[in-house]
Design a protein around this nucleic acid. Structure first.
Lengths: 246, 246
DNA sequence: CGCCTTATTGACTTTAGTCAAGGTAAGTGG
DNA sequence: CCACTTACCTTGACTAAAGTCAATAAGGCG
């Protein structure tokens, strides 16, 4: 068991996790990079820190780097010109952020809490991948993983019931390890209700009503806005099974 | 190595298009593979044909290959326990299909019309990419492109108005070149209303009503179920601008 | 030609969105 | 340290819009 001091530190090296395209064993996401690869990747990048609320990449800015998250939660969102915001994804440790198109970032990425990350300049990364096909394969695998995640997001959005969307959203946080320290029945919600609404395609009012409805039925505990507890794990799991596809 | 000028017709080659991550010029999707790369890719694959309605990959089957589409339209869909189907994407020429996770396909892919494709065995492809970092970079770029496309799908799904979803869907087909021969104001709809419903998160009735509503306002012509014409291009373009994000 | 699938249309219901108000938590400055 | 201020969350009443159920019409295919 880690000491409180050491667990407070983020991983010192870049790390990328994904469910493999092939040769899968566990069915779970696994670290893709060998230690030597982590070291190699570290040589072209730098450790950086972002405080809660700070913008990591800005939509439309010239893309010169991506970030590999070490700790903390990040949202990426696209803003329409009418001002409405769509949250396209939440990102956690071992994720890559900074997707670009035609040299500009397609999303704004915002730290929802203090974030540690590895900054990887695109020019150096591209050069590294061109001479290290194995490393490049790991990046390919990771992007395939993100594509599948975005498909699951689309499946969530296609659901009609607000309750179902919220259950699937909470399950997402659960599987991404967004839990309170030392209590895996307590899901942390580092994002605001508005972010949940923009991710699930609902309004904040409906998000609130769905959460309170699940609380009223004794499935969830909602003591404060920043976390929910699974009060009835069996029924919660049943709801997830009933609504999850595949 | 060198092929006669006529062989482009006699023996079509694999082709992959995407909007580049970096070094973008036009803002449009461009072919990524040089002719020599197409030839190299062709050596590990075989030309295959699928008739309309045939299944190319089956969800849950062991993944042993992917396909690069040469012509025709393909849907990929995931089926839930309860039998309901979600269309995760439509695919066109120059796309790659056959996304897997833990060695099994995550979607069922179905030819919506006669399809020509290049079949690429995964083992050979993986070996090729591991010794050809440039080719691998093109695949990485393509998967990033598909990730952005799936984000756009998610943004479509997050819209509340049925009309908006249908307009964005038609615009998608327009930009993917799903047009009637020699008439770029006539959009082909090779999929059924049910597929459109499963892609947009609506019901078939609502899809029908949205299309008929746009027809009643003189924006679209809907002469038969398999195609729509843009009756008022200016107003249609205005609707797209008003609803498209970014 | 007739059967079966697909598409459209109508009447009604359900559900989430909207508008409005009240409550709670967090952060600020005296 | 506490009152103040603000942003965030929740709740309620009402509305709008899509879903559901049911019937009809149009296509496609043997």
């Amino acid at each position: 068991m880690d000491s409180p001091a050491s667990s407070a530190y983020a991983r010192p090296l870049p790390s990328i996790s994904a469910i493999p395209f092939r040769h899968g064993r566990s069915g779970m996401a696994v670290p893709l990079l060998a230690e030597a690869e982590q070291e190699r990747l570290a040589t072209i990048g730098t450790r950086v820190h972002f405080s809660a609320g700070s913008v990591i990449h800005h939509q439309g800015d010239e893309a010169d780097c991506i970030h590999n998250l070490l700790s903390g939660v990040v949202k990426s969102c696209a803003v329409s010109y009418d001002g409405s915001e769509r949250v396209t994804a939440f990102h956690f440790a071992t994720d890559l952020i900074g997707l670009a198109e035609n040299d500009v970032y397609v999303d704004t990425t915002v730290a929802l809490e203090p974030v540690d990350a590895f900054r990887l300049p695109l020019a150096a990364l591209e050069a590294l991948l061109m001479r290290d096909a194995e490393m490049e394969m790991h990046f390919l695998c990771k992007v395939c993983h993100e594509l599948r995640e975005e498909q699951r997001h689309a499946i969530l959005l296609a659901r009609r019931s607000a309750r179902t969307k919220i259950v699937l959203f909470l399950h997402l946080l659960q599987t991404r390890g967004c839990l309170e320290r030392g209590n895996d029945a307590e899901i942390r919600l580092p994002m605001k209700r508005r972010d949940i609404a923009n991710y699930t395609g609902l309004t904040v009012e409906t998000v609130s009503r769905a959460l309170q409805g699940l609380k009223a039925e004794g499935i969830l505990g909602v003591e404060n806005p920043h976390s929910v507890s699974i009060a009835d794990p069996a029924r919660f799991a049943q709801l997830v099974r009933a609504t999850a596809n595949s």
